[in-house]
């Protein structure tokens, strides 16, 4: 895809985000789009957000479960950017009207204390570079109408990231097997999802390893101070105004949020 088309699509997604009005799947109008093109579209969309005053504070990893990979016909995850406008803290409220078609998922968020420069990043490097982990809700959202996404659509649309909520504790990962940390998600007081770290690429650390090496190929790196969302620990839950969500991860802590 040529640069003009890439910029036009990135702008269309940015406009959809700002207006809160979804657009048709890009893959319908541009079936020739490759995943590499999609990351260029995402880059344009983020450039527009940065130009409007937002700051990139981390990354998210998506498509980390076998089921979602199969659904999208890929065998690797994807990633998107987190900005300061997306972050909420434990117990805060999120205006549902600021999102289009939000769904929440429980995740483990990594806070890095060292840079990670791929290629050649291993699980040991990720553990050594981790300041701590937190329970986190990622609220995914799609600027594509009715979530009718193919992999190129979601990659272009910043990996369908909406906003995210960081939980009540930052814990050291020493003695913690993140694959085995269980997650219990309650919506309006009812348990709707349980899961565990292993749902993300068999181990959340694997997802961060993949991201560091993927960024390395693109000449980029993870930085000290970055937040990295490591992928869903269980199924996604649709959310709307009035919903109250609470999540607890074994050995890590909890996270709660209300949609108004």
């Amino acid at each position: 895809m040529d640069q003009t088309t890439i910029e036009r699509l990135g702008d269309a997604l940015y406009d959809a985000l700002v207006a809160g009005t979804p657009i048709a799947p890009l893959t319908e109008t541009h079936p020739e789009m490759r995943i590499e093109d999609a990351y260029q579209v995402q880059r344009r969309m983020i450039a527009r957000r940065v130009a409007a005053g937002e700051r990139v504070i981390g990354k998210k990893i998506g498509v980390t479960s076998k089921a979602v990979m199969n659904m999208l016909g890929v065998n690797q995850p994807d990633f998107g950017m987190l900005t300061d406008r997306m972050v909420f803290n434990e117990g805060e409220t999120i205006p549902a009207a600021s999102l289009i078609q939000p769904k929440a998922e429980g995740e483990i968020a990594f806070l890095l204390k060292h840079d990670l420069q791929g290629p050649g990043v291993t699980a040991a490097d990720v553990l050594a570079a981790t300041e701590g982990v937190m329970a986190c809700f990622e609220v995914v959202d799609s600027r594509i109408r009715d979530w009718k996404i193919r992999i190129q659509d979601t990659v272009s649309d910043n990996a369908s990231c909406g906003v995210f909520v960081l939980g009540d504790q930052l814990v050291d990962i020493a003695d913690l097997d993140l694959a085995m940390c269980g997650m219990v998600l309650e919506k309006n007081g009812e348990i709707v999802v349980t899961g565990a770290g292993a749902a993300s690429m068999q181990h959340p650390v694997n997802a961060v390893v993949w991201l560091a090496n993927m960024l390395g190929q693109l000449g980029e790196s993870l930085k000290a101070g970055d937040i990295v969302l490591s992928g869903a620990m269980g199924a996604m839950v649709p959310v709307a105004a009035g919903d109250s969500l609470r999540m607890q991860i074994g050995g890590i802590g909890g996270c709660s949020v209300r949609f108004v």
């Binding site: 076998k66 269980g182 219990v184 349980t194 292993a198 269980g234």
Partner: peptide
Amino acid sequence: RTLGVVLEKNGEPVAIGAGA
């Protein structure tokens, strides 16, 4: 409640949950 549970069949996780 939050004990993570991972059931693997032939090396692949096939069912994942928590005590709750």
